[in-house]
Simulated assay, not measured.
Amino acid sequence: MERFDLYNKHLEKLNKTMVRGASNNPGEYHLVVHIWIRNSDRQYLIQQRNKQDDLIPYQWGTHGGAVLQGETSKEAAIRETKEEIGIELDPHKLSLVKRYVIDHPHSNYITDLYLYQDNILINECKIDTVEVRDIAYKSFADIQQMISQNTFWDYEHLLQRHGYFDELEKR
């Protein structure tokens, strides 16, 4: 059973936890990370989810997940990337781009958006086939097209934050 620390909207711990799938109260947030890996050709290493029970099964997206109890956001970003695609990120190359505070009817959360710039070769990756079906490098234009075709998670819509992708591209 996965547990998450709860925070206020200023990322101050509340000394409370929640279990995955539970709802939290107004003013309580759990922490989530998105990790975007970009190579020197400005292409992003993306993954195709391998979960039939996802909102849209087999949707493409970025790497990420929930921050576990006792973990920092950066530690979770490193763990999630290692679990999903078998790559150990150098914490010194991992930069926090933006933090989004999201109030949602079911569960409030804070999303930390990370960028990792490195030329990771696809054949260096070891996919966790329970979580990930496939990986590929795609340009920002390719990703935008995939969003319009409903084959890639539209993070701007999901987070209700216009400019999500702009934050990555201007870095």
Results as ranks from 00 to 15, higher is better:
L68H: 03
N119T: 04
I37P: 00
N123T: 09
N123A: 11
Q59L: 08
E71L: 00
E84A: 08
R49W: 09
V32N: 14
T129K: 06
R79S: 07
A76T: 05
R133N: 15
K126S: 12
R49D: 13
D134A: 15
L31V: 07
K82N: 10
G27L: 08
E124T: 08
I120C: 08
V32Q: 13
D103T: 15
L121N: 14
I102Q: 07
I46W: 00
Y109F: 15
Q117V: 10
Y114G: 03
G64K: 01
S107H: 13
I122N: 09
V132F: 11
Y116R: 01
G65L: 01
P105G: 09
K82A: 08
D128M: 02
I35M: 04
D53Y: 15
Y100A: 07
I35A: 04
L94S: 12
P91C: 05
Y109A: 11
P26W: 09
K74Q: 13
Y100L: 13
E84F: 07
D118V: 06
C125L: 06
Q48L: 04
V67W: 02
R49G: 11
Q43T: 05
R42P: 00
P105N: 11
R133D: 15
S23A: 09
E28Y: 12
V101C: 12
I102M: 10
K74V: 11
D134S: 14
I102D: 06
L89C: 04
N123Q: 15
I37Y: 01
E28C: 12
D128V: 01
S107I: 09
Q59D: 03
Q48W: 02
E80P: 05
T129A: 00
N24T: 14
L115N: 07
K74G: 05
Q59M: 10
H63S: 12
V33W: 02
R42N: 14
V67Y: 04
K82G: 01
N25M: 06
D41R: 09
L96K: 13
G64P: 03
C125N: 03
W60P: 01
G61M: 02
H34K: 11
I46S: 00
H34D: 15
D134K: 13
Y116A: 00
I46H: 00
L113Y: 06
V130S: 11
E75A: 14
I102C: 11
N24A: 08
L45A: 01
P91G: 04
N24C: 14
K93T: 06
I102E: 04
S95G: 03
D90L: 05
I56M: 09
S73N: 12
E84V: 07
P57D: 10
K51V: 12
